[in-house]
Amino acid sequence: MRRYVLGWFGATLCSLLCATQGSAHHSFSAEYDANKPIAMMGTVTKLEWQNPHTWFYIDVQDDAGKLVNWGMELASPNLLLRQGWTRSTLKIGDVVAVEGYGSKNGQNIGNARVIVLTATGQRLVAGSSVERTP
């Protein structure tokens, strides 16, 4: 039987991609850059607790003192519900510190990994671990 293999092309790609192709909806690599860590603090202006991904938006003061609105993406509300989140875990007006990764296209969006509610110090995580990069 003839066997068709991926060869070096596949092996190289696998080393890069095999660990990043899992996702409900889209993969991390389709939109975000693991080499662009971001960290910012701001006030929640909007929450979208909807599939396929939860989004929240925060007003962040930039270095020039101007308020800039950022969109932060989380897992599906289905996955978050099963980790203990509810639709009111984050609320409009909450002041939050966020760590995550920025977008490949340079827009003001990010994949939030850690969210800290500054009023209480409560630390929310978007998934099962905050220790690993994608």
């Binding site: 066997r3 068709y4 293999v5 991926l6 060869g7 596949g10 092996a11 696998c14 095999c18 660990a19 990043t20 192709q21 899992g22 996702s23 409900a24 889209h26 993969s27 991390f28 939109e31 975000y32 991904h53 993406e73 989380l74 897992a75 599906s76 996955l79 994949n111 990994r113 995580v125 978007a126 998934g127 099962s128 671990s129 905050v130 220790e131 690993r132 994608p134």
Partner: peptide, 29 residues
């Protein structure tokens, strides 16, 4: 290991149905 936008440990066959086969030995046409 946790991966993806969700930082979840995904089921292996959800990521790769041929996970039990060496990557370069999957019998693709």
């Amino acid at each position: 290991k946790p991966q993806g936008l969700e930082q979840l440990v995904f089921p292996k066959y959800f990521v790769n149905v041929a996970a039990d086969t060496d990557f370069d030995k999957v019998p693709l046409t």
